[in-house]
Write a protein that binds this DNA or RNA. Structure first.
Lengths: 134, 134
DNA sequence: ATAGTTGCAAAAGTTTTGCATTGTA
DNA sequence: TACAATGCAAAACTTTTGCAACTAT
């Protein structure tokens, strides 16, 4: 049952497993990696009969991302995706389908990044490959 | 005079060199590469005495980006930058200063990107390095 | 009781659209 | 005069905030 997993993930994230959050987490952590927008989540919640407001969807997604349970991927104006795959990896964006696809993080190597000055630390390196039919 | 250059760029982009657009282009293409948000541009326009609405700032930036005169760089929610450097290159984002810095495109090499299926074409490869003090 | 947490209505902020106006042929 | 392009007010959309209600001790 996905609800059990959902509850465990919420507790691990230090969030109370309220009915809204359990409902959302059950949708997100069903065992299949996904890339969803807040709007997708809202729609999925409605279909699943989870009664929740848009604000709570945003807040919950933000909290899960802050807890490292989701990865926020910002693409273009007004296109924020949340990725349930939180291991280091990159993304391919299929423009024609408006869809994000993971690229394994191990496979990709980036060489030639500049040395950082004193006291600076790399927080993340994201590669986004935009792909179109042609 | 930056106004002459501005007018040339607009004509090259197929846009009428109206007073608003010339004013904005003169701010953007003053010979120094910059990373600006629509809000920055609005403020700069006001300081420069260019009378223009927010909508026109957005529309003009979008038109210049579509014409390849500006590069749109989307970072996070509600953080769209326009880069006057349109040659292929990557970006470093300094979180503490909320500032984008260019990384030369020639210096960086990315290896291990997956083969694309039939009929797909890479449109762009963007690397974003997030940096923080630490 | 009370201190902390939650969910959401309302507010804030960003971007796009519809259309009156202006410019062009 | 007709036809296309422009600029912007207003609308649409995305995200955050403030606070009443709830929970746990």
């Amino acid at each position: 049952m996905a609800r059990d997993i959902a509850e465990k993930m919420l507790l691990k994230a230090g969030l109370r497993p309220t009915s809204q959050r359990v409902g959302l987490a059950a949708i997100l952590f069903d065992g299949v990696d996904k890339h969803v927008t807040p709007d997708d989540v809202m729609r999925l919640a409605q279909s699943a009969g989870v009664d929740v407001s848009v604000a709570t969807v945003y807040n919950t997604l933000g909290q899960l991302a802050a807890a490292g349970m989701l990865r926020r991927v910002t693409l273009d104006v007004g296109r924020t995706f949340f990725d349930t795959n939180v291991s280091p990896h990159h993304h391919l964006f299929l423009e024609d389908e408006d869809k994000l696809v993971d690229i394994s993080g191990d496979a990709v190597r980036i060489i030639g990044l500049p040395d950082l000055g004193e006291g600076l630390r790399i927080k993340s390196v994201d590669v986004l490959v935009r792909v179109e039919r042609g």
